[in-house]
Design a protein around this nucleic acid. Sequence first.
DNA 1: ACGCTCACG
DNA 2: GACGTACGTGAGCGTA
Length: 929
Amino acid sequence: MAFGKGHHLHLIDGSAFIFRAYHALPPLTRKSDGLPIGAVSGFCNMLQRYVEGNVGGDVTHVAVIFDKGSHTFRNDMYDQYKANRDAMPEDLRPQMPLTRAATRAFNIACEEIEGFEADDIIATLARQAEAEGGRCSIISSDKDLMQLVGGGVVMVDAMKGNKVIDREGVEEKFGVGPERVIDVQALAGDSVDNVPGAPGIGIKTAALLINEYGSLEELLDRAGEIKQPKRRETLINHREQIELSKRLVTLDDKMELPFTLDDLEVKDPDPDTLLAFLAEMEFRTIVKRISDKLGVDAPVIEDAAPVAEDAPEQPPFDAEKYEWVKDATALQTWIDRIYARGYVAVDTETTALNEMRAELVGISLCVEAGQACYIPLIHKGGAADDLFGDDALADGQMDFEECLTLLKPMLEDDSILKIGQNMKYDAKIFARLKIDVAPIDDTMLMSYAMNAGLHNHGMDTLSERYLGHTPIPIKPLLGSGKSAITFDRVPVEEAVKYAAEDADITLRLWQMFKPQLHRKQVTSVYETMERPLVPVLAKMEMSGIKVDRDTLSRMSNAFAQKMAALEDELYELAGGKFNVGSPAQVGEILFDKMGLEGGKKGKTGKYSTGADILEDLATEHDFPGRVLDWRQLSKLKSTYTDALQTHINEETGRVHTSYSITGANTGRLASTDPNLQNIPIRTDEGRKIREAFVAEDGKVLVALDYSQIELRILAHVANIPALKQAFKDGHDIHAMTASEMFNVPLDEMTSDVRRQAKAINFGVIYGISGFGLARNLRIPRAEAQGFIDRYFERFPGIRTYMDDTIAFAKEHDRVETLFGRKIHTPEINAKGPGAGFAKRAAINAPIQGTAADVIRRAMIRMDDAIAHLPAKMLLQVHDELVFEVDKDAADDLIAAAKDVMENAANPVVKFDVPLVVDAGIGATWAEAH
DNA sequence: ACGCTCACG
DNA sequence: GACGTACGTGAGCGTA
């Protein structure tokens, strides 16, 4: 039957499928021979899901289109086309032919043509289908294909839940109809494909211009009429480049193809061929699924692939099935189910992301994959009550207090495990409502324990990677910018789908991760250093630290005055007004206007004006020094004295940061909203900011910090006798290093020599390089290299440690801390400049990570150790803990806390060197440190 | 949204 | 042999 009216052609962008599969899955290998097959596996799953999704659909013709080779006619037009693409990963290359074989095994047409991109073939076929009066759906999210939409052609974005992109979708993305997409692309260019376009013009501006002038050609011809001088010149000066860009982005839709539309007719796969291929790949799960579906016996796979165990059969996600809990009877049914099961996934919806300010809006629960509910509590928008802004409660919601009263016993029940994704957030919301959620599990922390370094651990990432499911995005529900609404304004109907799905996803992730923890040997890391931190941090964050607004405000004013004075001086020196805060303008004045030497342009074409460069120039001119002074004040004012005031909570009068447990790959915490881990201390002026951090009346702040913890850990792991002895004897480690290296007796040590040794000591922790040390010490590179050589000569154990660490990383794609925390280093075997980064990170991670483990252990034990004292732990700054305590109990606190910190490694790790903790007391953080 | 700059350990 | 590099973070600003 010839393709024509009533027929529907599906064109699948093969490369997009492959890359998505590759990035979505861990690097699986075939068990029998170690052949990488992660991408093939994902590709087959996607094909299978695609085929299933279209059973009974109206698809009549289908093909998967691939790219062939990397050289196309576009490279002949422009040699830089796609020149910035990274090389294909080594473990993906051998999988490329297998994806073609997989396509054929599914009996789907598989096409690729030398010298052309898949997009050109897709364009040609789409136009042919259109000409024959049929329809065409392109399965891809590549915006380059949007020019084809219209007539009978649409795109289907498989990444976004098969969202259909039609004419309107294209207009939304490009601001013009499909016919003008290439005009917009020609102007905007494309950094991914390295299409130059017109410098400084993005999609928004391009669409504006094209809509005004009708077409690119018209625009270029009448470019002289444009009012904005910069834009006018850009278009006139870059005409050729823009026209080239248009040719690059225009798809060839008139290729001569060695096959016809009729050849693409949908055919059922041959079960034997398909199963044989899948069995050969050792895809146990998908073999079983397809055998069951076709009603045939599954071929025997000798060696079970490990994927199968991790991916038990799960019902598909179906937002329509989630329950809207409206009353106590319905809720009680859920509570009964939870007790029958022993565990429940919980998620809260609130009015804000800041837990200290957010109000609880609703709760979702899930007890079994696919079976979840949402309990809306204070959604607005019931009876129209426009006088009061529609603030009436929506119908179908149970009483707030009644709901909490019913849930509280369950949430606090020792026998019911509460599972969450980032449970610290939900626990804090509940804690403010006097509910102590325990015991808990946290899928985000499980992922972190298993996969630190591989990817982030947000719900969207985890769901996509491990469940192959893209969660309902929150953006469309809340909107953005000025018109954004809070979750209590989301219609309950929509809220149920979104909120219940989160609990559903969390439960499914937990079911998958729980058995993996053992297999990946991170159970103890998770159970001793991740999960127990949740209540500890929640408590610290809720305590907050008192910050004195008046002190900050006074400092702000003083800074503003000094800045204004500096600005006047700078304008004088520059011979005119300019924006001191603009690095670009500072660079121009220094290097163009004043003609100073040493201007280096970065990749954006701007002069670099970092502090190190300006410091070098300060000897030649007054200007750069003044800029540095101004910058320091500007930083202190905007980031600290001004911004910090906005973070003072109205109710508590204190600042409540939020610690991210999974924020840093090494095991360190990260502090946000505000970041209290980078409050100034290095300069006297900045240090004053710490005077605004104060204790309540009758109390004092106590700061305890580990002395040289990373160097002590280095001395231990690299087993350097001289360093270990120096720490045991309590000597000045930097002076000792200097003495050993430069053969200077300790009593003749100069501060300068000690400073250099200190830089080397730190450099070693960071994965030292001659270049880095030279820059840090401002000495010639050869001299720096000489220092390093001498250091390694004197402490050969350090070099051995570094080599061993890198060898371990190369073999296992990860490094470990002394406590067993695993930190993945996926780039360690990469070629190119990335390799250097990866090596240094691999050297640093076990040291920084072990120190992070030590303080985590201390924090977890601290609660009990100081429970008998009128004291609270408030802050953690990597190697420092800050407490607030009644004045007369300060000494007791110091004794207790110091003991916990110094012995935090015991009994798991027995350090050869003592861990020493220094203490300080004061009315402010400045005094205490 | 992204790069620059700079605050901390 | 050249190239580009100290490790780990977060926030504010200017610029597109």
